[in-house]
Amino acid sequence: MSDAIRTASGRALSELTLDALRSGTLDRGDLRISREQLEAQAAAADAAGLRQLAENLRRAAELTAVANDRVFAIYDRLRPGRATHGELMALAKTLADEQLPRLAAFVREAADAYQARGIVKAPR
């Protein structure tokens, strides 16, 4: 399987060697899992009847496109009382615009749940 698998930066698995690292042609970005590979793992989970794990891996696939700092920022927005319903919906729209539909739907779902249970930040 290994030659079919590519890193997030597009390199083949066979290129990830100590020699490459020594010659300075390998960096942290070359050691990241790709969106496609996470989609493949999601499909494998689905085939094994693990629907929820598959869903999570599909959201993870989308998150490969999101920078570390922004991942932290989105996580923070999803914590209780951090964002108004409108702010969460705006975040969802941004994600949708970036072709991250599953993340967008997930944030929308959270926004509605938080609204219903009164754990959104009160709008000023």
């Binding site: 996470l38 696939a61 999803l78 209780p80």
Partner: peptide, 23 residues
């Protein structure tokens, strides 16, 4: 209990996806 722990099921689930997104 979730809110006292400063999280929600959605925030925790998002974290799981965040970890998985980095393998």
């Amino acid at each position: 209990a979730f809110v006292d722990g400063d999280d929600t099921p959605w925030s925790k689930s998002f974290l799981a996806a965040a970890y998985a997104s980095r393998g």
